[in-house]
């Protein structure tokens, strides 16, 4: 059974790059670009992994994460957070909110793939 990842990212080019990488790595990739409806999308799909951008139109990645951690069905969902702001305060906030992995843009593709595999180990 293919593992299911959801990517919430508003920058189309970055979305395309990550989709390309993870699809080739054997993931089913679903994407979502809007902050406001992101929590609904995640709880509906309930992916194996969530990749979350911080600066989103509407609701920020931090708020989405807090929201998800407050729900029983998503409280232990593995979350990889990507941010372009690169301020240490953001990392602290994310960790407090319950992030599993926090990475700063621009990232190396290998790093992302390692992190993803690490967070959701292959069933084989």
């Amino acid at each position: 059974m293919r593992r299911n990842v959801m990517l919430i990212e508003d920058e189309p080019n970055i979305t395309e790059a990550i989709r390309f990488l993870l699809t080739r790595d054997g993931w089913d990739v679903q994407t979502h670009a809007d902050g406001n409806s992101a929590v609904d999308a995640v709880t509906r799909v309930l992916p194996d992994l969530l990749i979350l951008d911080v600066m989103l139109p509407g609701k920020s990645g931090m708020d989405i994460l807090r929201d998800l951690r407050g729900r029983p069905e998503t409280e232990s969902l593995p979350v990889l957070m990507l941010t372009a702001r690169g301020q240490s305060r953001d990392r602290d906030m994310a960790e407090k909110a319950g992030v599993n992995r926090f990475m700063t843009k621009p990232f190396s593709n290998a790093e992302v793939l390692d992190a993803v595999r690490d967070l959701v180990p292959s069933p084989t």
Binding site: I14, I18, G86
Partner: peptide, 26 residues
Amino acid sequence: FLGQVSHELRTPMTSIRAFSEILRDT
């Protein structure tokens, strides 16, 4: 402002890096 500038600079660089690595490694 600094956060914004950082974000605005890193976002295109993220795309550039990701696709250049794809081109290199794939």
